[in-house]
Write a protein that binds this DNA or RNA. Sequence first.
DNA 1: CACGAGCGTATCGGCGCCCAATACTTGGGT
DNA 2: ACCCAAGTATTGGGCGCCGATACGCTCGTG
Lengths: 258, 258
Amino acid sequence: MTKTAGVTAVDERLFLQSVARALDVLEAFAQSPRPKSLGEIAAATGINKSAAQRIGQTLLARGYLERADSGGLMLGRRLLDRSFDYLRSNPLIERATPVLMELRKLAGERVDLSLFDDTSTIYAIRLQSKRETFYATLPGRRIPTFLSSGGRACMAQMADAAVDDLLARSDRRPLTPKSRTGLPEIWEKVREARTEGYSWAAEEALIGEVVLAAAVLDGDRRPIGAVHVAGSLSEWAIPDFRRRFSPLAIEAARALST
Amino acid sequence: MTKTAGVTAVDERLFLQSVARALDVLEAFAQSPRPKSLGEIAAATGINKSAAQRIGQTLLARGYLERADSGGLMLGRRLLDRSFDYLRSNPLIERATPVLMELRKLAGERVDLSLFDDTSTIYAIRLQSKRETFYATLPGRRIPTFLSSGGRACMAQMADAAVDDLLARSDRRPLTPKSRTGLPEIWEKVREARTEGYSWAAEEALIGEVVLAAAVLDGDRRPIGAVHVAGSLSEWAIPDFRRRFSPLAIEAARALST
DNA sequence: CACGAGCGTATCGGCGCCCAATACTTGGGT
DNA sequence: ACCCAAGTATTGGGCGCCGATACGCTCGTG
């Protein structure tokens, strides 16, 4: 039972091939979310057409896939039910909802709760403010930990060795031209977050956007997520933005920490 | 290939038992989202402990389940990735996002996009306004079509026989004491929606809340979802609320219809 | 302290579910 | 009319899954 990249390794004999393949099929739509034919699914997942057919029919019958107008298969609405169950089951989400609402009201800017998940970070709650660009603000979006303000705030709470390990396993490709991808610059931001109590990032994930975040800790003082405040560079100078919102984010994150 | 309750029936020989059981395990958390032991999972899904173990290990390895502190299994963050893919793949969601943002700004109240799914209706996008009660406002929440304003707006676009069929298949249990569950009262609201172009409901899903909604139609004039505006009865009289927001919801829904 | 009831974990023989190749049917493009 | 690629359906065979069983552990309990 060893740990590899944050995922528990499993004895082969306890591993269900067909379940894993079904998950492969669903995950195939992460690359390109357009409808796919059985042949495309088979090619994308490395299984043959017969297996794709069986898996497709099964997921279709359960609502996790749907027929597109074109006749192909696309993701189904039933997936929303499962993520709803997840959100509802997570005590942090429940505690965070009213706190974030209040923060959103105070700040007047977009407010997010992200969940720390090793080399990436997922947005679980997103409270919009103004006009935003479609899917960049959907819940469920993943951002590499190393370039997210929330991710850096989480790394700041970890031991040096753990941060080094995480960064070594990260795929450090930039999302924008301003993404900091070099180890020294990332470490600099992590150290800054340790002294300031929060981290910030300007245009590293989305052009024109400045974000700051403070980490939420569990009972063992380990980071489990972060509270973000995001604003537009067309409305804010970075020093003003930091001065104004960092105390609010830190306060909210502390309220959520066990 | 017959249709039953909106789900396509599948040849038994194309149906993967272990995949279906894995989905059963995930769906078991819909009833009560707390962490479960293997024994509880086995009992809830009707499979034995060995199968639950294998499925659990597989879903755990893929991140769709996680270990709770107690040692039990709970839903995993990976579920959010799949719902993100779904939202991203749905063209309606993409078109609706800016329209709803604008509507939210104009109305100043909570705005939702729901997806029509036979006897129930799912909230896909939720733009909050003020303080709200936790999971009632999470995306992915399902409401019975017959008592949701958006669901009734959708039914108003269907043939009489189809509405009768849908209502006959519905589980018409109330969500609140004010939920209308009788067929005549529901039909009355459907007819009202046909003449008014929108539907409304007061405290039928949530106490203290009034909602109105207009249906979004696809290229064949069939309902695929609805645009909602929701307000608090502590701030609005129902006639004022209807007069003020119904034109906005109708306009937004028309803009989203193909 | 012994005990048993849970838990998660691990093992194993055997059967039946899933495998993959194949053929059929349909529809769209040339 | 042709062909290619799509989804659909069928089949025999093999091995992957099935489920009973057993092990070690941590509880709360008598």
